[in-house]
């Protein structure tokens, strides 16, 4: 087959297209090709060792991404329910019908909580910290307590409110602020009584230490039995026991 094709080409060679471009054109094309080849930079040789390392790193990274993708937690579609019992709302203070005489208490504009107000209630002039139980913010409650303590015309009503905070507020710093406010009224007999009663209710060592210091300074002998109980109570903090022991000594020796 191929012999026949070769024979055919040999016999008809004159009829084949053997045209060549003009020699001047051909020279120019060849010159251009030569100059391009001279300007071309030599190619870089990548070591096979490097390529292996790069491939290994890519594989490791890809593996990591795959592990993450298949193990990632499902996006949250909502909040989980829980079987933890809801906290009961704190009891609201008993209040008389409130007349509209409202005194605002200074509050820094940092938290968006209900406005802290002190309502004057007629005819008993009972001052309550309206809304203090509803305040989520400890800072707002501290502000309410300190502002009430600094009021010029404060009296039994403020004392009652401070005692209530001292006995019930969940935050130690708020209770300490209430105790500080009550210190101003230490000469009042009812304050003395309420402080003695409150000492039994306190569980936080910081509040206990401050109360023991205050009542010892007031030379309140009514706390001696309570102090002795504290000294012997396993659950009372060691630092409180030491302070209680010192106070017992001071009250008995003076």
């Amino acid at each position: 087959m191929s012999n026949r094709l070769e024979k055919y080409i040999r016999d008809n060679v004159e009829q084949l297209d053997r045209k060549q471009p003009n020699l001047a054109v051909l020279d120019r094309v060849l010159q251009e090709m030569k100059s391009k080849e001279q300007g071309k930079r030599g190619g870089s040789v990548i070591s096979l060792r490097w390529a292996k390392w790069a491939a290994a790193c890519l594989l490791v990274a890809a593996g990591g991404i795959a592990v993450w993708y298949f193990n990632k937690p499902q996006p949250a579609t909502g909040f989980a329910t829980t079987n933890i019992p809801e906290k009961r709302p704190a009891p609201m203070p008993k209040t008389e019908p409130v007349e509209p005489d409202v005194v605002e208490i200074k509050q820094d504009p940092v938290a968006t909580f209900p406005k802290v107000v002190v309502h004057k209630v007629q005819p008993k002039k009972t001052i309550v910290f309206a809304g203090i139980n509803d305040m989520q913010s400890a800072a707002s409650r501290i502000n309410a307590v300190t502002s009430a303590s600094r009021m010029k015309n404060n009296g039994k009503e403020v004392v009652d409110a401070l005692v209530k905070v001292l006995n019930n507020d969940p935050n130690t710093n708020v209770r300490l602020a209430a105790l500080d406010g009550l210190t101003r009224f230490h000469k009042q007999a009812n304050v003395r009584q309420k402080l003695v009663a409150s000492l039994k209710k306190q569980q936080d060592p910081l509040v206990q230490i401050d109360m023991i210091g205050l009542l010892t300074g007031m030379r309140e002998l009514g706390i001696l039995s309570e102090l002795e109980e504290m000294v012997n109570d396993e659950n009372v903090h060691r630092a409180v026991k030491d302070i209680a022991w010192t106070s017992i000594h001071q009250l008995r020796t003076r």
Binding site: V110, S137, A139, N171, T172, N173, V174, D204
Partner: peptide, 9 residues
């Protein structure tokens, strides 16, 4: 910046 209420034992 605060406000701040801290209690530490």
């Amino acid at each position: 910046t605060g406000p701040l209420a801290v209690r530490a034992v």
